[in-house]
Computed example of a mutant assay.
Amino acid sequence: MDTLKIGIIGAGRIASVLADTMVRMPDVELVGIASRSLEKAQEFAERFSIKKAYGTYEEMVKDPEIELVYIATPHSEHCNHAKLCLENGKHVLCEKSFAANVAQAEEMIAMAEDKKLLITEAMWVRYMPMAKTIKEVLNSGVIGEPMTLTANLCYLVSDKPRLIKPELAGGALLDVGVYTLNFASLIFGDEVTDIKSSVIKTETGVDAQNSITLCYPDGKMAILNSSLQVLSDRQGIIYGTKGYMVIENINNFESIKVYDKDRKVIETHERPEQISGYEYQITASAEAIKNGWTECPQMPHKTTLDIMKIMDELRNQWGLRYPFE
């Protein structure tokens, strides 16, 4: 396969991790970085030995050399930036949360499908080998029928302006809560029968922390917590009729420990060696482009939309609307 040539829109922290990952991958080439500041783009390019720096996003998407664009801008900008890329014939790997709401997500996906271009959500954990391992352990029946799960993801990040500004679609839900929702989706699927929640808001009006309970057919339940204000253990725990399993770090699966009815560890699975974990979504995107797919099987459009619908419903329960909606 020819080397996939990639550009990044946005030169923040996630873009830095991605750039560091891509320069170590043999089958892709990070060709360009675009920022609203040419100086920032040039500094970023120099740091990672990227050959092209652009002071506008428009300039980069018109570069014929770039095939795939990674969108690493705030949630509020994802829709416009994705459409800009698609209009210029670029495939898109879009940072989570995919969009600010389901209407935007539907618009992005419809445009990609119409143009026969790939668009996929960079929910990196869905592409990791450990996601498959979790499924295999569950399917083995070792913990019996999984009936309940808990997941939490909380960071001390309330000092970051991007995360507390309503105009940037800030709040815990779209930034970290989306991981807890994806964990629940990975285990129980997307057929949710009931959604209950509680929220504490910041002074700016976005969610500082939230607690979500999802119910599924056959009496299954997920209890999810996320916050910008505290530190948590980041665990996901799946409770079954014969035992339970603990997944360390639902934001970058590290290990799985399986416990029997006596609460004794009977299996342990460790994460394989990786560059950063971001490489798997890049490889999956490359495979999808090679095959002419408009979505990645690891993160289907339907799942992205189902989770966006849940987040819209949660914000509706909380009376949280972004200024641009």
Results as ranks from 00 to 15, higher is better:
109 I>Q: 05
204 T>E: 02
49 S>D: 07
142 V>K: 15
52 K>R: 13
72 A>Y: 02
316 N>P: 05
320 L>H: 05
235 Q>V: 04
91 H>A: 06
105 A>G: 08
140 S>Q: 12
310 I>M: 09
302 K>M: 12
82 A>V: 02
26 P>L: 02
154 C>L: 10
14 I>E: 00
193 T>Q: 13
32 G>E: 02
151 A>F: 08
131 A>L: 04
195 I>N: 05
71 I>C: 07
39 E>Q: 00
228 L>W: 04
5 K>P: 08
152 N>W: 03
126 R>Y: 07
272 P>K: 13
315 R>I: 08
9 I>V: 14
36 R>F: 01
316 N>D: 13
33 I>T: 08
1 M>A: 14
314 L>F: 01
164 I>N: 00
272 P>W: 03
192 V>R: 07
18 L>S: 00
208 A>P: 13
120 T>M: 04
179 Y>N: 13
166 P>A: 04
308 M>P: 12
178 V>F: 12
191 E>H: 14
171 G>W: 04
325 E>M: 14
187 I>G: 06
205 G>M: 11
191 E>T: 13
56 T>F: 01
24 R>F: 09
193 T>F: 04
23 V>S: 10
151 A>Y: 04
162 R>V: 00
50 I>F: 01
269 H>A: 09
303 T>P: 08
268 T>Y: 01
184 A>F: 08
244 Y>K: 15
49 S>N: 13
94 C>H: 02
57 Y>V: 00
111 M>W: 00
40 K>F: 04
293 W>H: 07
254 E>N: 09
156 L>N: 15
58 E>K: 13
164 I>E: 05
43 E>I: 00
18 L>W: 01
134 I>F: 05
110 A>C: 12
264 K>C: 09
159 D>A: 05
83 K>R: 10
119 I>W: 01
42 Q>S: 11
276 S>R: 05
237 I>R: 13
231 L>W: 04
155 Y>P: 10
182 N>Y: 13
128 M>C: 08
37 S>M: 12
251 N>K: 06
7 G>Q: 11
321 R>H: 06
305 L>F: 09
23 V>F: 03
204 T>S: 11
48 F>T: 05
280 Y>C: 09
157 V>P: 02
